[in-house]
């Protein structure tokens, strides 16, 4: 159970170095990246919010500080200026980095279950609820109380009214 700090300390130093590099170079969308055309810029922002930064843990390139995220933001803008549609820009990135970079997974064989899942779950649940109602209609006759239960109930009721009187 004993350990020395040296190994972890070194690892941390290394990690910190990497982090400093990543962070000191850029910081989310920088003013020099912004396009002059506000319509294109708005589209660029929207796309970059749906593109995952490949080096970060779980961040869109739009809010990531990583240098690669900045490059990708610039690529997105270059493609838009070149006349690509939003879809084409996303495909351009997915062709290079895979569907991994798309926060909106494309609908295809491997994702049918994902996209249909919530609806399917609701339908199955709905069927369950339907059978619940049908089943409960069938056993309409309530079982009468057993003698012990009846006496317990009487006692409880008596107890309750007793308390109320004392109020």
């Amino acid at each position: 159970m004993r350990a020395t700090i040296n190994a972890t300390g070194l690892g941390l130093l290394f990690f910190t170095l990497m982090l400093l590099m990543a962070i000191n170079l850029a910081h989310a969308v920088e003013p020099d990246e912004i396009l002059d055309d506000p319509v294109l810029e708005a589209r660029a922002r929207e796309i970059s919010q749906e593109v995952r930064c490949p080096v970060c843990q779980n961040e869109p390139i739009d809010s990531s500080n990583a240098e690669l995220a900045r490059e990708l933001r610039l690529v997105v803008r270059e493609r838009l200026v070149a006349g690509d549609s939003d879809e084409q820009v996303k495909n351009y990135l997915a062709d290079r980095y895979g569907d991994f970079v798309l926060f909106r997974p494309p609908v295809k064989t491997t994702t049918y279950l994902l996209w249909a899942g919530p609806g399917l779950f609701f339908l199955l649940g709905g069927v369950g609820v339907f059978f619940f109602y049908r089943g409960s209609r069938r056993q309409k006759v309530p079982t009468p109380l057993s003698p012990e239960e009846q006496s317990k109930l009487d006692q409880l009721l008596a107890d309750k009214s007793g308390k109320e009187d004392s109020a």
């Binding site: 490949p54 080096v55 690669l68 490059e71 990708l72 610039l74 690529v75 290079r96 980095y97 895979g98």
Partner: peptide, 13 residues
Amino acid sequence: PNSRAGIDWGVYG
């Protein structure tokens, strides 16, 4: 220098 070729190769690290 601006990692365009890197991006075309799908380089991330």
